[in-house]
């Protein structure tokens, strides 16, 4: 038909114009805005920290600053930074996730551990057990998790840092119990994951599965996450069991060099990370049940909930983080082999 051509051209041109206009609507970024890409359970923590930092920064410089947050499974969050989310700082659940960003995207300097005190760890944590009230299955230690009738809820170690700490904590326990026998430690972890009915992608997902949906008998989880369930669901429904030994869990923080240089936010972002080491921030960590680097800065009643227990470092058992990640969680690693052996 005659009229098809001119109209066709108009429409194609209009569609093209619209898509260009769309690409141009890049949100203008104010200088005084930071983005902290964090892992799953720190939602409540960074609400407090970000507000405290904004107040502190305003008092010191007069500049109004907004710190935005994005939360999700630690591995998934690292992936979004690699894919280009404009994060100024990352506060993730496990060192290997920051290593992955440094290795794949080069947006973080490979020596990030040396840039901040205590290898970039303003606080640490550990894994404890959340059980149903009265502990009906009698879970006291890691060995009890593989009792025949015990169902364990834990997140997927591929995507979740909490999931990886649980995995490594169980492995480390079995390794020490069996006189450093690697085969027996592997077999123990294999049995444990056969008793997991649901693998969520993040620690928060697992908590909701256990606490809200009522699945499983025991939730090995971040200490802070266990206390959060206490606060949200009431202490009459759950008990926290602190095992005699557990893992020294290291959720590190780092500056995303490439992004802050591009956005011109290096000064603010560095100040934000330094702020995490101040007494004020340290007290906030303890209040949210994370183990502060400076115990003296925390309130007595908060510290009382963080008892000294025997904590082992996974690096002491398995070597460097590159090795730990490769051996256990990369494609074809121990976790994948367990999956195949189980089916």
């Amino acid at each position: 038909m005659r009229f098809s051509n001119s109209l066709g051209h108009t429409v194609v041109a209009a569609a093209f114009g619209a898509s260009l206009a769309l690409a141009a609507t890049v949100p203008a970024r104010a200088q005084s805005e930071l983005l902290n890409v964090s892992y799953d359970p720190t939602r409540e923590l960074y609400k407090d920290i970000n507000a405290a930092f904004a107040e502190d920064w305003k008092a010191k410089t007069g500049e109004t600053i907004t710190v935005r947050a994005a939360h999700g499974g630690s591995g998934a969050q690292a992936r979004t930074v690699i894919d280009g989310i404009p994060a100024d700082v990352v506060t993730l659940g496990i060192p290997s996730d920051i290593d992955a960003i440094a290795r794949i995207s080069k947006k973080i300097s490979p020596d990030w551990r040396t840039k901040l005190p205590n290898e970039g760890l303003p606080y640490t944590s550990t894994v404890v057990f959340l059980v149903r009230k009265g502990n009906p299955k009698g879970v006291k230690d890691w060995g009890d998790l593989v009792k025949p009738d015990v169902k364990v809820i834990t997140p997927n170690p591929k995507t979740s840092a909490g999931g990886r700490w649980n995995f490594l904590a169980a492995w480390g326990y079995a390794y020490e119990q069996n006189n450093k026998d690697v085969e027996k430690a592997n077999a123990f972890v294999g049995q444990l994951y056969k008793q997991v009915p649901v693998l969520d992608t993040g620690a928060r997902g697992s908590t909701v599965t256990f606490a809200q949906r009522g699945l499983g008998d025991v939730l090995p989880t971040w200490e802070n996450e266990a206390y959060l369930v206490f606060d949200e669901f009431g202490r009459d429904k759950f008990d926290i069991v602190i095992p005699p030994t557990s893992i020294y869990a290291e959720p590190p923080v780092a500056l995303v060099d490439a992004n802050v240089d591009k956005k011109g936010t290096r000064k603010q972002a560095e100040a934000y990370l330094q702020f995490l080491y101040t007494d004020q921030a340290q007290a906030i960590f303890a209040k949210h049940h994370y183990r502060p680097l400076k115990r003296e800065a925390a309130k007595k009643e908060d510290l009382a909930l963080l008892p000294e227990i025997k904590l082992f470092k996974i690096e002491d058992l398995q070597g460097s983080w590159d090795d730990i990640q490769k051996k256990n969680f990369d494609n074809g690693g121990l976790f994948d082999q367990l999956g195949k052996a189980g089916r």
Partner: peptide, 22 residues
């Protein structure tokens, strides 16, 4: 994405597509 087909070009021209409104 940064690692994607058009990633390097977009970064060079300071255009944010994913993880943003576009």
């Amino acid at each position: 994405g940064s690692q994607g087909l058009l990633g390097p070009w977009l970064i060079e021209h300071d255009i944010q597509i994913i993880f943003a409104v576009p």
